[in-house]
Amino acid sequence: MDTLTPYEVEEKVLDEIVGKYKGSPGVLLSTLEAVQEANPLKFLPQKTLLQVAKKLNVPATQVYSVATFYSFFNLKPQGKHTIVVCRGTACHTKGSRELLNSVGQILGFRYEFDETEPSYTTPDNEFTIRTVACFGQCAQAPVVAVDGVIHSNVNAPKLLKILKKVKSSSYAKNQSK
């Protein structure tokens, strides 16, 4: 599934991280966190999970269990830029769903809106699109956050402008988290 992305943390780096946390309480959690942080695409590929399991001598399934339990772990590559579309009630009535579909059109993929899918990343790893239950900025609906910066009263043309700016990378680059 994720085979197209070659980004995996090097064995050497992995060993350093494992060495750092070995024996400490919550070792699996801290290791996974550090390993994800070390990955340029901020995610935990399958191979990395298996390596961590092996090095910490815990079952791979347990590693997977932890990685899927905490929402801050990503099992899919995260784009350089993150677009979060609010799916709260206010945003919904002001057309956040159409907005999501527009994001798809703008970025050149078919975004079948599916409530169960937490995120989608474009094949070129430029953008990750996610939804959030509510930003709490309902007065300015619909709300979209791009690389952590909140934009209010967004419509498709406005979003297009923002994304163009982002892509030309003069804008809030790598403002991660």
Binding site: L49, A60, T61, S65, F69, Y70
Partner: peptide, 27 residues
Amino acid sequence: VSAIDFAGRGQKSKISTFMDMGLGMVD
């Protein structure tokens, strides 16, 4: 063996194998 474990959380909790690969593909 630990071929299966809980995965996900909350309403998405389920019992699964590593990467949802399926019992026949794991250990």
